[in-house]
Design a protein around this nucleic acid. Structure first.
Lengths: 209, 209
DNA sequence: CGATATATTGATCATGCGATCAATAACGTG
DNA sequence: CACGTTATTGATCGCATGATCAATATATCG
């Protein structure tokens, strides 16, 4: 059995403890959503007292906002690296759709949906949400602009197209969160939609498998 | 000035009082989101005691779920009537996209987003969400099937296409909720996307402006 | 080895939530 | 007009949240 008895936490450097608390918050958010990122829950997870968590953070609103930003920034980096390995814009765009709609990131989707809701009462979080949305948009816009220059994407406004694309992806993922049933098909028709949006021939975004 | 002093509420029939409470909850949800639908807030708005609100409801979870269902069912009826006035499937589909993305229903969008988030901890609400999503999907699927039969929509699975369409719309609206900036353009490219999805010629869903 | 700086804690406060129940007051009926 | 049914209330409980602060224990430095 584990030790349910609280033993005093070992004294650590502020940097180390601070990192531990941030990591506990991150895992908690991924497992149970941002709503579960609470003073006491983080403290329990990190093996310290609620007072210590409060000691290292200006406020819980800020900690929630930081946790959100960390999670999404990680996701963006990961996907960006994944895309960079593809030969051209069409492959990158197809891979982007596939990887974001394959259901392997539902934990992050929950964080997004809760952030939209909580952001209305947590200004720091709302700012983080806008920031990370902009970061996502920059990545997608880059792919589209590249495609317009070298792969025949047709659009007059790559920025708007990127927003459109992200909105579609977010909505489909949010839906799948609730309609757990046939979630496997959530990306089944988006290739055709995006081809229509960018003036591409039918099937040109299909991936190898 | 108003009367901040609590005066005893007039005695009314259970049906009437119950309706008043439901209406207070509905308005509260539309103005401040489902999170604001709380025992005390509803009581204050309806001019009664929290205890009376509780008296008329089995639980707050149920009241929140009912409030959500009422709001969305109203929206569906309203949009369905709006669509029925259009001559054919193409006009109906175009009008559907336009009206749902023109930003006039952001209050309902907030309710949707919060419902997705709260539904993870309120099973009654989660059930309502699935129910209303199904109702929405039935409406859209009807338009698409009609279009496939009489207006050249090309799709092998009208049901899946309907889900796809709703996901796109929901995502774009949810995004616009946070990126208040250039929200006006939220539907600027969706016509092209849907045309691509359903194998329609470019511009065939355009509306009269 | 002793002293100082500081990481950590326990206790506690204020707030908001849903829920319950005996007591009260108003209405309708006989 | 009196009475009984019942709509309404006040008081209160239990729980969870974020936050604060004096007290305590530990690592490090002189």
């Amino acid at each position: 059995m584990s030790t349910p008895l609280r033993t005093r936490a070992a004294r650590k450097s502020p940097a180390e403890r601070s990192a531990e608390i941030a990591e506990a918050a991150r895992l908690l958010a991924l497992e149970q959503g941002l709503t579960a990122v609470t003073l006491r829950a983080i403290a329990a997870r990190a093996g310290v007292t609620p007072a210590l968590v409060a000691h290292y953070q200006p406020s819980m609103d800020a900690l929630v906002a930081d946790t959100f930003a960390t999670i999404v920034a990680d996701e963006i980096d990961e996907v960006a690296a994944f895309l960079a390995a593809r030969p051209g814009p069409r492959e990158r765009l197809g891979a982007l759709l596939d990887t974001l709609l394959d259901g392997t990131r539902d934990d992050v989707t929950i964080v997004w949906v809760e952030a939209w809701a909580l952001g209305r009462r947590n200004e720091a979080l709302a700012a983080s949400v806008r920031e990370q949305m902009d970061a996502w948009q920059a990545v997608v816009q880059g792919v589209i602009e590249d495609g317009a220059a070298t792969a025949g994407f047709r659009t007059e406004d790559a920025g708007a197209a990127a927003w459109q694309l992200l909105g579609m992806i977010d909505g489909l993922n949010a839906q799948a969160l609730v309609r757990w049933g046939d979630a496997s098909a959530r990306g089944s028709m988006i290739h055709g939609a995006v081809e229509g949006m960018l003036g591409l021939e039918r099937g040109s975004l299909a991936t190898r498998g």
